[in-house]
Design a protein around this nucleic acid. Structure first.
Lengths: 183, 183
DNA sequence: CAAAGATACTTGACTAGTCAAATAATAACC
DNA sequence: GGTTATTATTTGACTAGTCAAGTATCTTTG
């Protein structure tokens, strides 16, 4: 009834030339799986998802004491960068590292914490301009050092060349995905 | 009032030797930012988050027609791999690519869709053993080809050596993070 | 064997992500 | 100058992630 594909006991040679007897990869150990990956592409995507997840979790520790989340921090950073002019709601979404359709509600929470100020634009009343508040600036200032330190710490196991190469590979993936059937 | 750090107009030389006049990186273009990154470590973490986000979004397209999410798909894969023995709830969580504290409710939804079957273990009534159903197996079977194709397609812009190197770099990050103050 | 501790979940109360539909204001066109 | 289209944002209804606090059910230990 159960097909042997996926089963830990499978001993079929894999398309990528691995066999079940080959030493398991780091990722396979982590997710307790003996079946070899179907392709390097599969291994790469899974490794990317897992690494990003662990890194996000580690990085969140820096913010959690301040009572804000990673996404809320990103909004504050963007608004600090925008300066006194502020930014309209959807322009903030455009600049987020991770796409954020729920930007309105995210900012709602920052307004509730009085870290962000919002106001309708008189010239164009469709738009809502957002600004970082004084206490928002103070909170960010207190986080600058911990955040910078964390970025270097979590990448500390790679030397500068490796970091550069990683960035190049990731850039290449994103550029390649843009071409892929924009649908 | 506004510090010039973070402002798009900043012209300070960056710690990594870049200057504001240097050509913007791919990532900087994407998030519309002129200020150079504070370090390679910062650029690498942001590139990793952004790439994983875009990749997750692209990959979700494969599942959305079937009415399941990426995480639900992962649970089904794990249960198919477990075979007729099934797996207890928390063992599934251990094997997920991304950590999933809400595993109970995730499986609730799969049970509601009749893709998973759950039952208390008689020997140890604390445990709940989970199994994939026949229709779960059928659904997975119909997704095998699209999923495998997607994994290769989204990594198609990298050659085998590049994929291997990417996996190595990501493995190195995760191994390094394990050491980092287990706290 | 009873009390204390450890396991394996489960639930509650949030924050977020996702997609579709609604609103509201401005722009473009005839 | 009154539609029609477009833009900017909001809302609703889910799914999911997060953390803390339960609730059974074993297991261990005095």
């Amino acid at each position: 009834m159960m097909v042997d594909r996926d089963t830990p006991a499978s001993s079929h040679p894999a398309p990528n030339g691995n066999t079940a007897s080959r030493k398991r990869s780091v990722l396979q150990e982590e997710i307790q799986q003996n079946r070899p990956f179907k392709s390097k592409g599969q291994e790469a995507t899974l490794a990317l998802f897992r690494t990003a997840d662990i890194l996000r979790r580690k990085t969140s520790e820096v913010f959690s004491d301040s009572g804000i989340t990673h996404q809320q921090y990103n909004v504050l950073r963007i608004l600090r960068g925008a300066g006194d002019d502020g930014l309209p709601t959807l322009s903030i979404a455009d600049r987020m590292i991770e796409q954020t359709p729920g930007i309105t509600r995210l900012i709602d929470r920052l307004v509730a914490k009085e870290l962000v100020i919002r106001e309708r634009v008189p010239n164009d009343r469709r738009r809502v301009q957002c600004f970082i508040s004084e206490s928002g600036l103070e909170l960010l200032a207190s986080l600058d050092e911990p955040v910078d330190g964390n970025d270097d710490r979590v990448m500390g196991m790679l030397n500068e060349d490796e970091k550069t190469h990683l960035v190049e590979l990731l850039d290449k993936i994103r550029l390649g995905l843009r071409e892929l059937e924009p649908k």
